[in-house]
Structure formats: C-alpha cells, structure tokens
Design a protein around this nucleic acid. Structure first.
Lengths: 212, 212
DNA sequence: CTCGATATAGTCGATCCTGACTAATCGGCT
DNA sequence: AGCCGATTAGTCAGGATCGACTATATCGAG
C-alpha cells in the first residue's frame, strides 16, 4: 500500500498545490507558505524547498518555465506544474486523506519509557504539559475565531480544527493520566477508553473534564 | 527552551532507557524493542540504532564495556550507560513529558490543501479514513485488553492508550468533517470545537493580538 | 547429512535534510 | 550621499536516515 513516491517530502505536496494555482519561483512559494501560516502544518525550511523543487523537476512533475531577472536581484527561476505533476498531486492527496499512516508523536516515546520516572514526578510533569497544551489550544482557537469573524470559510480552517481536536484530546488524556498516577488504586485510564466505544457511528462524547 | 541535545534521535532515548536496566549489545536492544512492540511508538531501523549508539558513545552517555565472542558469530560489543547518560535520560524524559513540541501529522498537510479536491470526493475519502482508523483502534484495543487480561499493569500501557486517544479523536473529527462537507449549510465543525471551551484555571497569557 | 530458511550481528552508500552562509537590493534615516 | 537593517533569492557542507547488503550460525525437513 505504502507507495514509494519519487518525492516523499510532504513539502512537495504543498509545492504542487501552489503551482496548481499559477507558475511561480521557489522563493515565492515559500513566502506564501509562511504568509498563510501553513508552515505550522508543514515542516518548512528554505533549503528543503529548493531541494524538493529540484526533485520534482527531475521526476518530471514540474518544469522550468523561465528565468527572469527584472530587477538586478538574483535570478528567479519560475516553475510550472506538468500534467504528470497534476496527476501525482491528485493521487497523493487522495492517499493522504484516505489512508492513515504510521506516525510517531513524541509523547508516545516518552510514555513508552515512563517507567524511568517516579510516578509522582511524572504526574507533575504531565500537569505542566496539560497547561501548555491548553495555552496552545487557546491560541489556535483565537486564531480560528478571528478568521471566522473575518469571513473565512470554515472549510479552509479544517487544518486548524484538526489541530485543535488533537490538542484537546491530548490534554484530556494527559490530565487523566496524571490523576491516575496519583491514585493508582482507581483503575486506570483504560476503563474509560475501553468501555464506551462499542458502536462506531457513535458521535462524540463531548465532555470537558478538568479536575482540580 | 528547545535544547540542542547532542543526540537528538528519539531512538537514543529508548537506548538509554534500555541500558538503564542492564548493559547490552545494540542488537539485543533492537531485539527487545521489536519484541515489546515499542517500535510502533519509536521509529526503528537497524542502521539508525548502531549510529545512535555510536553517537551516544562519542557524547559520553554510554561506554563500551566489553567485546565478547562466545559463539563463532560476529562480535557483540556490550555497552553500559554512564552517569552522564543517566542524567541525560532523566533530563530528556522530563522535557519530553512536560513540554509539547511542534509536530506535523500528515493529515494536517492534506487538510491544509484540501481545496485541491472536490468536496464530494474529499468526503468519500474521509469516510474511508474513518473506517481505517476504526480498524486500527480496534486492533490497539484488542492488544490492550489482552495485555490487561494477562495482568500487565495499566501504567505500562499508557502509550497504547495515548495512541487510542489520538485515533479516536481523529476518527470523530474526520467523520464530522465528512458530514460537514456533504451539508455545507450546517455550519461547520467549528461550532462544536469553539463553544465548549472549559474555562481554564486562569493563569495563562490570554492574548489574542492579531489585529487585521 | 544436506539443503534451505530463519536468526544473529553489523556495515555501507545513496539520498535526504537542515541550519548556516553568501550576496545583492531596497527602504528609510540622517 | 552614506549607512543600517530588512527583504529577496539561492547555495552548500555536514549530518541523519534508510534500505540493501554481508556473513555466519542454528534449526527443521527430507
């Protein structure tokens, strides 16, 4: 299933999507990425950008359209997406949306080695994380609210809402885990996670639990 | 805050934790990682393992203890953790647990470029993902239940429960998003995510400076 | 006893990624 | 006119990563 794409870096997906709108030079692509704040969802840095564009060119997904030098600044090479590029973009997008693939969130690593810490200390650290997550979530929320107020269609904010979902879920989990670590008798987080999901169409249990 | 660790690969955290229990040769570390299924939470492959061990040695976090050749198989070099290594492990664990750091889940990328797909098609793809996520979650659940039945302490399953939490959250989000894409009039996922903000223990910097 | 399959243990090169660097130009200030 | 800092545009060396490779040992089937 896992296709070996000729260019695997997710940044390439953004490049193809960008060039779908209109031909551009790499720096401009990067500028728009930063401007639109998409860099919070795609790992971006300049070097990778130029590399990825070059890779896409070699793979035939984009072509060098022209090299202009209107001012006396360094030349800007403008790239355009090809038909193969369009095909790749569609295929890749479909795959990214439809198929989840292995990810390695950093907390997973830490939790899997949690034994190396005293339960009491771990609980304290988890509290700290919980606070930090709440703060981050507040920021995203503010950002989304602001955008909505300015008339941005909600569909365009899907990625922010996704981020929010994950942040909230992690915060709740972390808070519960901290609590459990303090009362090892009360049996676990599992109880909550294992019971209440018999049916898969069941809609969300919206409860905001925040223990003192 | 974001420390430049001498060895940054998360695999190194697992290596240190492994050597904390007892001195070992790299291959054995790898074997245990696979055996205990921790490789689902830590990106593992052989080459990286040996590299990481070598890096840790150079950094003084582990030392070469002995090189044995009991059978006629290739030599096995046994490593032991040093005091510096122990310190690094504790510090690193504390940081990983307490401080969330930027992550780039693949779906975030896709969502931020969702405009490149027809809403109807996107909805279908999201349904597909939702199914896949449910299946994955079922597998993890089965695994956890099994472990619990075999008397494994729940604390040792924190990472599985975390995974479960994320899978469930994503599945719910994805399902709702698909629904919204089919009824663009019904206003969005936001409604649900923005309202139920539990008032947090006031202390964070509540600022939303984003004048437009 | 021999063949193939699997497990053990480690190495290597090609590719990829990143942060730091160059280098010119523009805008503003004095 | 001269200078400072920000912006524009791109390059590059040094690491990090991954898959593929080597080579021996053990085990089971025939």
């Amino acid at each position: 299933m896992a296709k070996h794409r000729k260019v695997a870096n997710p940044l390439a997906l953004a490049v193809l999507a960008g060039l779908l709108r209109e031909p551009m030079h790499p720096y401009e692509l990067g500028r728009r990425l930063l401007e639109s704040g998409k860099n919070r969802h795609i790992r971006y840095n300049r070097g990778s950008l130029y590399m990825v564009v070059e890779q896409l060119r070699k793979a035939g997904f984009v072509t060098e359209r022209e090299t202009v030098r209107d001012t006396q600044r360094p030349e800007r090479t403008v790239y355009a997406i090809t038909d193969e590029g369009r095909a790749e973009l569609r295929d890749w997008m479909r795959e990214s949306v439809a198929l989840p693939r292995a990810e390695y969130p950093q907390l997973g690593v830490a939790l899997s080695l949690l034994g190396a810490l005293e339960p009491a200390e771990a609980a304290g650290l988890l509290d700290h994380r919980s606070e930090a997550l709440a703060t981050e979530a507040d920021e995203v929320r503010a950002h989304v609210e602001d955008a909505v107020d300015h008339g941005v269609a909600w569909v365009l904010l899907a990625e922010e809402e996704y981020r929010l979902t994950l942040l909230d879920a992690e915060r709740r989990f972390v808070a519960r885990l901290a609590k459990s670590l303090r009362h090892p008798d009360h049996v676990s987080v599992s109880q909550e996670l294992l019971r209440p999901v018999p049916e898969r169409t069941r809609q969300g249990p919206d409860r905001a639990d925040r223990a003192g």
